[in-house]
Design a protein around this nucleic acid. Structure first.
Length: 676
RNA sequence: GGCGGCAUAGCUCAGUUGGUUAGAGCAUCGGAAUCAUAAUCCGAGUGUCCGGGGUUCGAGUCCCUGUGCCGCUACCA
């Protein structure tokens, strides 16, 4: 019997958990783990929060607290959400804990000693106002190659050339707006290209991986791997374990996957068997399975295996990486920033967490992006769980109670129809077994519901309400057979609905925890007890309430954003302002620039003179919308060639991230009027 | 514009390596039944498998092309 380590992607500890996370990386893993347990396999389910990186430290700065406060808050929130859905890890750790620091540093040190990490002294911009180094993308300036303004530190968009950021002319920090100074800094790089052959060979053996995962990896390898910086000049993270690296930390995506191991070590320590983790991570036969969303594919199939290959310990490499696609919500992409999401902690205030398990399982985004619709949620809970499964249990149990005081005995012989029904149900358990084995959760659930439908059909055909008048033994047989069907369901549905199935088994007097081997066992006679409905319907008004909440949250979010005050740029002199030549210009012609999404080519009258320019307005304005408008235009900006056209002016426009709006004069003024 | 993905019933989705009359659930319509949460069961459909072309004895499936949508990316003086 092989061992399993199952992991789910470490959720990032700067926000709450929403249904998209659950559908992609957590529920499928939890179901798989529960399935393996039913099969009495040796499995540990490992996770924890990912607690480093700039977004967390920025959030902490904003709130004026330490990053650890943010991390602790969301670690708790996320853990509670998982608990509410009965997603139960063997260990749920976090990457800001000591054992994780130790192990991440060990990985780094060994990769360094083995020649996979090299350092380079680079000169980098340093923002003295903020006392921090600036990542390339946080600096803008004039391109040293083509002289265009506004080039980013990593690349000039005008000429397309890569830039060594310190060669930027007139650099500006995007963080503080001040002029950064150049400082030497050393960074360490992981030489991914050195792993190319080893990775290719290893990946060749993974022909059984999901197609979407393989395609993704192949395109990465074909493009060629490049070295990646794995250190950062920020103050929140795992310190780089070198004296000369004072104040530097490991880049978050380097230390995060190591969390799978460090969380397992923590688990072993909690058991009082500090070496127990080795039985899993160091056993070649262990199947390591990473459940992730599709965005995480490169990290888990290229980077993370490279880390493992390049260090000294014989940790197992991933056996499989079943990545799922995305879940959309009411036809739109789930978005944290727009607050277009169903948050798990909210959901469980209104509904049983296992209702969410059911709907996300039956509609899991296994092969393509899927949609979560509240109406559909209600429909599935009501027509499938309640009407088909819940009602089958209830009608059988009620009938038994009424006529046999709930005592169910195994008949000496079974008629053909009963035997056929049981055989069909048992045959389906084989299919279900295969589905679970191959991560096909949605098909597994559908097949289980087929067993329930089979039970209803059988019950109807036997017509026990008629038979009870003349042939009581036939009715006993009917009830027995239906109980068998329900007992089968109570086992095979356990990975999907652990708590509900436990309730069902409780009613049936099945005290032992479910296991697959029980399918062949004989617990009869059983005494039905405490008969009750286990599922409740979802009412129309509950769904309307949720739909309303969803809209309101998104709306409230929009308004909240407007209030957000962004720090002002540094003060300037009046003379600086006077350097700007801004005038009213009339748009004469406008047309879309071919091969672009956002650009309009425009000619404008600036008061007796015509100029040409390019404006990035096409997302918000059709050419005909803007022709003849009198807009505000900055005219003495150094002309720049864009898409072959020399752009001689800039139309002033406001952009709040949602809407883009050009500025117009309040009253009608003459074209060419100066602004000041 | 580049790269990638997707397009199947009114809705949400399955359709394995090409192989008979293309499926499921829900919704709709008709019927049966009355044990049960008005739940259940039986029956009936409905499809230019996005358009066009090609390969093949045979295409929802493979190739080319067009259209539409989604994601990443580029363009914003």
């Amino acid at each position: 019997m092989s061992k399993y380590i199952v992991t789910s992607a470490l959720p990032y500890a700067n926000g709450k958990l929403h249904i998209g996370h659950v559908a992609g990386a957590y529920l499928p893993a939890d179901i798989f783990v529960r399935y393996l347990r039913l099969k009495e396999e040796d499995v540990i389910y490992i996770c924890g929060t990912d607690e480093h990186g700039a977004p967390i430290s920025i959030k902490a700065e904003k709130e004026g607290v330490s990053p650890q406060v943010i991390v602790d808050r969301y670690h708790k929130s996320i853990k509670e959400s998982f608990d509410g859905l009965n997603i139960n890890f063997d260990n749920f750790s976090g990457t800001s804990r000591k054992p994780h620091y130790d192990l991440s540093q060990q990985f780094f040190t060994e990769l360094l000693e083995n020649g996979y990490i090299t350092s380079k002294i680079t000169q980098q911009f340093y923002d003295e106002a903020e006392s921090r180094f600036l990542p390339d993308r946080y600096v803008e300036g004039t391109c040293p190659h083509c002289g265009a303004a506004g080039a980013r530190g990593d690349q000039c968009d005008a000429c397309g050339k890569l830039i060594d950021s310190i060669t930027l002319i007139n650099p500006i920090s995007k963080v503080s707006g001040s002029t950064p100074v150049i400082k030497d800094t050393k960074q360490w790089y992981l030489e991914l290209p050195k792993f190319t052959d080893q990775l290719k060979e290893w990946l060749d053996s993974k022909s059984y991986w999901k197609e979407n995962v393989r395609n993704f990896i192949l395109s990465w390898l074909n493009e060629g791997l490049i070295e990646r910086a794995i250190t950062r000049d920020i103050n929140w993270g795992v310190p780089v374990p070198l004296e000369e690296a004072e104040g530097k930390v490991l880049y978050v995506w380097f230390d995060a996957p190591i969390g799978y191991i460090s969380s397992t070590i923590e688990w072993a320590q909690k058991q009082g068997k500090a070496d127990l983790w080795k039985d899993y991570w160091l056993d070649k036969e262990t199947k390591l399975i990473h459940f992730i969303g599709k965005d995480n594919i490169p990290f888990h199939t290229i980077m993370w295996p490279s880390f493992v290959m390049g260090q000294n310990e014989n940790y197992v490499l991933p056996h499989d990486v079943p990545a799922n696609e995305y879940l959309n919500l009411e036809g739109e992409k789930i978005s944290t920033s727009r607050n277009w999401a169903i948050w798990v902690d909210e959901f469980i205030k209104y509904f049983d967490g296992e209702y969410l398990r059911y709907v996300l399982a039956v509609n899991a985004p296994e092969k393509q992006d899927n949609d979560f619709l509240w109406k559909d949620f209600q429909n599935k809970i009501n027509t499938e769980l309640n009407n088909v499964l819940g009602n089958l249990a209830n009608r059988v149990f009620s009938f038994s109670k009424k006529h046999f005081q709930g005592l169910v005995e195994k008949p000496a012989t079974l008629s053909d129809s009963s035997q056929a029904a049981l055989k069909q149900a048992n045959d389906l358990t084989q299919d279900i077994d295969n589905c679970y084995q191959s991560y096909q959760v949605r098909k597994a659930v559908k097949t289980i519901m087929d067993i329930a439908r089979l039970g209803n059909r059988y019950f109807d055909e036997r017509e026990p309400w008629k038979a009870i008048k003349e042939d009581k033994t036939s009715v006993q047989e009917t009830i027995y057979t239906c109980c068998e069907i329900l007992r089968i369901i109570s086992v095979v549905m356990t990975p999907i609905l652990p708590n509900f199935m436990s309730q069902l088994r409780g009613i049936m007097g099945l005290r032992k925890p479910a296991s697959w081997s029980q399918l062949a066992s004989d617990p009869y006679p059983i005494q039905l007890d405490n008969i009750k409905r286990i599922f409740q319907k979802v009412e129309d008004n509950q769904i309307e309430e949720q739909l309303k909440l969803l809209q309101e949250n998104a709306q409230a979010n929009k308004e909240a954003e407007k209030v957000n005050f962004k720090e002002l740029k540094p003060e300037i002199e009046f003379d600086d302002f006077m350097k700007l030549d801004i005038r009213i210009a009339k748009i004469l012609t406008a047309e879309k620039v071919k091969k672009t999404d956002k650009l309009l080519q425009i000619t404008a009258d600036i008061g007796g003179k015509k100029i040409e320019l390019i404006a990035g307005l096409a997302k918000a304005y059709q050419p005909e919308d803007i022709i003849n408008k009198k807009v505000v235009m900055l005219l003495n900006l150094k002309p720049r060639k864009i898409k072959g056209v020399l752009s001689q002016g800039m139309i002033l426009a406001a952009d709040d991230g949602q809407n883009l709006s050009v500025l117009l004069a309040d009253k009608d003024v003459k074209t060419g009027a100066e602004i000041g």
